[in-house]
């Protein structure tokens, strides 16, 4: 089985779907000839032609709006927003149009649209290349929101997203495009090749949207993570030696409620981690879910490790980005309670 980076896995998913469904079209800024600023669509225009893979003007509301129009006719557009930080001009089309078309037309019109966007920090990108806006999407009824954390899931989830009958926001944690990231800002950049999740089967396969994965089974405490934070969790466990169960949510909406409840009922403790700002972040939703479903099993308060409630900094990036040390301290605190 070939080993792939996340970028290659995403490109492969698009290639597979472009080949087997003539309704699939791929477009966005710099996506066509050049193949995207992160190269996720490199070569696709050459293989599938300019009518299937093309460049757009710099207008995110146009990118999403064109996608809604095409999807409503039954095509399967998979569009790219260059950075999640630039989706805001398209947010009207996403939250008010794509998300609600099925419901408001009583299913006369639907919107099988996929909107891909790189998300998250850790790349010295400052406040306009580092944001994690997932909670803005999970707050919208009618959207699905997925966040793969490795090449295998990226390909399987993207194919599932393209085949999904409803709009899917596909968030790509850019820090781990080329390899897992364990929070050592100045140190090594480990590639994907040594990780089993980088073994990506050829051709079509799917990872079901709405299903979490247990990345590390454990009995002491449950860590709920997604995207880059899955690796921060692995590293915190390595540093503290605490027998934590790491759950990679993979899909935020719909959420794998059963997997979360099963784990927390077993461990009785829970820490939530994400890069996004804390207040009204997705961690608040997770903490509420756990509290409602597992209250009588809890032995310690649920903790949230998140980005601070400030704009994403440049110089102070590593004081902002949730580190394995911060998560480790939370794990130790939870174990003492």
């Amino acid at each position: 089985m070939p080993t792939m980076t996340m970028i290659e896995a995403i490109r492969d998913a698009l290639d597979v779907k472009l080949a087997d469904d003539p309704g699939v079209v791929v477009f966005g800024e710099d996506v066509g000839f050049f193949g995207g600023v992160f190269r996720c669509t490199a070569g696709l225009q050459k293989t599938h032609g300019i009518e299937r893979v093309f460049d757009t003007p710099i207008n995110e509301s146009a990118i999403v709006g064109l996608g809604v129009g095409m999807a409503a006719q039954g095509m399967k557009p998979c569009v790219e927003i260059q950075f999640a930080d630039y989706m805001y001009p398209g947010f009207d089309q996403i939250s008010q149009e794509a998300a609600r078309l099925r419901h408001r037309s009583n299913q006369q019109f639907t919107c099988p649209l996929v909107i891909r966007m790189p998300t998250g920090g850790g790349i010295y990108g400052g406040q306009t290349h580092s944001q994690s806006p997932e909670a803005l999407f999970t707050h919208v009824a009618g959207l699905k929101v997925v966040v793969p954390s490795n090449p295998y899931d990226a390909k399987g989830l993207l194919i599932a997203a393209i085949e999904d009958p409803d709009p899917v926001i596909f968030l790509e944690p850019k820090r781990i495009y080329n390899g897992p990231f364990y929070g050592h800002s100045a140190g090594e950049a480990a590639g994907w090749s040594s990780r089993p999740e980088a073994q990506v089967p050829e051709g079509r396969y799917t990872v079901e949207i709405g299903k979490a994965a247990i990345r590390r089974p454990g009995s002491a405490i449950t860590i709920l993570a997604y995207g880059t934070m899955v690796f921060i969790a692995e590293e915190a466990v390595r540093q503290t030696g605490i027998d934590a169960e790491i759950i990679d949510l993979r899909s935020l909406l719909p959420l794998d409620h059963a997997a979360i409840v099963q784990s927390v009922e077993k461990t009785g403790r829970c820490v939530v981690i994400h890069e996004a700002t804390r207040t009204s972040g997705f961690g608040a939703e997770l903490a509420a879910e756990v509290q409602e479903a597992c209250f009588w099993h809890l032995k310690a308060p649920i903790q949230r490790i998140t980005g601070w409630d400030a704009p994403y900094p440049l110089a102070a990036e590593w004081d902002y980005f949730p580190s394995p040390q911060r998560l480790g301290r939370a794990l130790i605190r939870a174990m003492e309670d």
Binding site: G125, G126, Q127, T128, H129, P311, P313, L314, A315, A316
Partner: peptide, 13 residues
């Protein structure tokens, strides 16, 4: 250089 000569104290790219 995002150092203390920067009037915006390293806030932006």
């Amino acid at each position: 250089y995002a150092n203390d000569c920067d009037p915006t104290e390293g806030r932006q790219l």
